[in-house]
Design a protein around this nucleic acid. Structure first.
Lengths: 192, 192
DNA sequence: AAATTTCATTAACCTAGGTTAATTTTCTCT
DNA sequence: AGAGAAAATTAACCTAGGTTAATGAAATTT
């Protein structure tokens, strides 16, 4: 379990045994059941969460009660509402598990301690966030430029693992369309 | 000029005079005219750019030749295609100036040198990117959840300075709608 | 200041994707 | 294995926003 975390934390910077011990002391391990919430709207997101095993979804509920998936989470990904975590204000997102999920979590205090004790983690997290920002920028650009059908094809090309493990109506939600529209798009794609 | 840069670089971390001198030695100052490109599609983005004065737009051109604005840039903001900058691959974006614009720029080599010589800059840029990522996540969420009219109202509430300085058809492009639709939305908003 | 280009607005018509509803297929739980 | 719930599909109809086109108002350029 721990080696999945350490392997990823050591991806952009190399770590000594002492540093690994510090890391082990500052994170906690948790398991969640399928359907279980990791975070609910209105709570303050007290942990950033690293997925060891499982699949999660982060979604917003609009005034009509409809769910809109903002992000999926898979093995080795970080999830959590960074804004709520950093500002200690209530989140507007919900995060729950699509499969049984195992995670490591770190609090804000412990993350700050980690930056103090292992300064190179500052670099690690800068790079993690940089990559997340680039992915998010690309998603904005593609929502401006591309049709729903193209976004669907891009999605299955980019995240084939997710397509296998997540029901279609949740992929539709991620793409910003209805399940009916996705079904229509899929049947048109299959014709060709 | 330099104090605008240093003021911002010192926003999240405090700086000594030596550190300020290092910063001054690693950045270069440039001016661009209105309409002038800072970056063009196909180039490698060799600099991250800090705006001292002026307004910029970052946009993608689709296969039909239509422009889609991904980001505006204003005083004290960082612009540039981070992906192209970091991976040294050709960018798909164009950046040009909506007004005459003054900037500080830093190359990848010099940014790495800055991280070596002033390690606390690693923290500064982590926070900058963190904020940009949060803004981008919110933009994804609002494009999934909100109507064009609501996105327009959010935009003018959040960036009143941009609304003053940027023509409407470019705001329409940023919102992902046509100038005609924006005009229709604006006339409906004014009725109420 | 005249000419030209760029921008904003309005209107008629069109289309991608939404809505509602019914049917079938696939999960999930006992 | 069988009942009930959740998910996927299809079809008829609807709507937000796109497209095309025309007109006038502002900016720029000469």
């Amino acid at each position: 379990m721990l080696h999945a975390l350490v392997g990823t934390l050591g991806k952009y910077v190399s770590l000594t045994q002492e540093e690994i011990d510090v890391i082990a002391s500052l994170f906690s391990f948790r398991t969640f059941r399928k359907r279980q919430y990791i975070l609910q709207e209105g709570e303050i997101n007290r942990h950033e969460t690293f997925i060891v095993k499982g699949v999660t979804r982060t979604y917003e509920v609009d005034e009509k009660g409809q769910e809109h998936i903002v992000q999926f989470g898979l093995e080795d990904w970080w999830i959590g509402d960074l804004y709520s975590f950093l500002t200690e204000t209530p989140t507007k997102y919900n995060i729950d598990c699509i499969e049984d999920t195992e995670v490591f979590q770190i609090t804000k205090t412990n993350l700050e301690a980690l930056y103090e004790k292992v300064p190179k983690m500052e670099r690690h997290f800068r790079i993690i966030i940089q990559n997340a920002f680039i992915a998010s920028t690309n998603r904005v650009a593609s929502s401006l430029v591309k049709s729903a059908a193209d976004r669907y094809l891009d999605f299955i090309a980019q995240y084939p693992q997710i397509e296998q493990r997540v029901p279609n109506h949740q992929i539709a939600s991620y793409l910003g369309i209805t399940p009916q529209s996705l079904s229509r798009i899929r049947s048109q794609v299959n014709k060709k």
